[in-house]
């Protein structure tokens, strides 16, 4: 187990955003989070490395166990957590600096002592971007196409060798060809990294995720509270779901 996440409740101010979601993230596997919009899947994902801390009023009841520690314990520095749990965002977001500097950013941040050039090349190869950019490492990261930018962001995240990679709808801003490349990349990356991914696209979950977690929205008490409905092997979730709600969602009866 890479991360054991027990969410009892997540609040934004007085608004209950997510409840009762225990999401174990298994080592060396890709865990996909699916569900209708507003179901809290991104919120849960971003809670894993404390990216929600910046949002005013965010409060989590529960624990996120990672490397034998509760990530939300008082003595834990969120900055350290984020160095071990990397993140790739929905929109490609390279810094406005050169391709090389983008990838070297995290290494320099951690005062990496070894050979920077080698590490940058390694990370770019890992992100299947090296051949396309090896002759223009000095060019701005923003000059690349959307799909290349997203792979650059993946290279930037893997350069520091985090244990876990969180991906928040990494392909939703990309065209089908670029999406395909990122998916292939994820399948390669899972040999070394544990990946947790939010996706809007059920086909994508079936293509890449080993384990799928299905979230839904509970509007019964007047609010809109997300919760985990069902989690299991992707095959089982899509072919033999236990819950009626999952069945309906997968058949496309609501979205």
């Amino acid at each position: 187990m890479a991360i054991h996440c027990v969410v009892e409740k997540i609040f934004y101010g007085s608004f209950l955003a997510v409840r009762d979601s225990n999401v174990p993230i298994q080592k060396g596997k890709i865990t996909g989070f699916i569900g209708p919009s507003g179901c809290g899947k991104s919120t849960v994902l971003r809670s894993l490395n404390r990216m929600n801390d910046m949002i005013n009023g965010f409060r989590l009841e529960g624990q996120v166990h990672f490397m034998g520690q509760d990530v939300y314990a008082k003595q834990v520095d969120p900055v350290i957590v984020r160095r071990f749990i990397g993140m790739v965002f929905q929109q490609p977001n390279p810094f406005s600096m050169s391709i090389y500097d983008n990838v070297a950013f995290g290494l320099r941040l951690n005062r990496y002592k070894g050979n920077l050039d080698e590490k940058v090349e390694y990370a770019l190869r890992r992100a299947a971007l090296w051949d396309e950019v090896k002759d223009k490492l000095k060019a701005s990261g923003l000059s690349l196409s959307g799909g290349q930018q997203q792979r650059l962001c993946i290279a930037r995240a893997v350069a520091t060798e985090p244990t876990v990679l969180l991906m928040d709808e990494p392909c939703s801003a990309l065209d089908p060809i670029a999406t395909r490349r990122i998916e292939e990349l994820m399948l390669e990356l899972k040999e070394e990294y544990t990946i947790a991914m939010v996706t809007h696209n059920m086909q994508q979950a079936t293509r890449v995720a080993d384990i799928t977690a299905f979230f839904a929205v509970d509007i019964s008490k007047g609010g809109r509270t997300g919760y985990l409905v069902e989690m299991g092997e992707t095959k089982q979730i899509f072919e033999a779901p236990q819950e009626q709600l999952t069945k309906e969602y997968i058949r496309g009866e609501f979205s």
């Binding site: 977001n93 406005s96 995240a157």
Partner: peptide, 14 residues
Amino acid sequence: PRKMKDAALGMGCT
């Protein structure tokens, strides 16, 4: 852009 700041924080910047 907000997303660039998020990227920096996501990389473990203070």
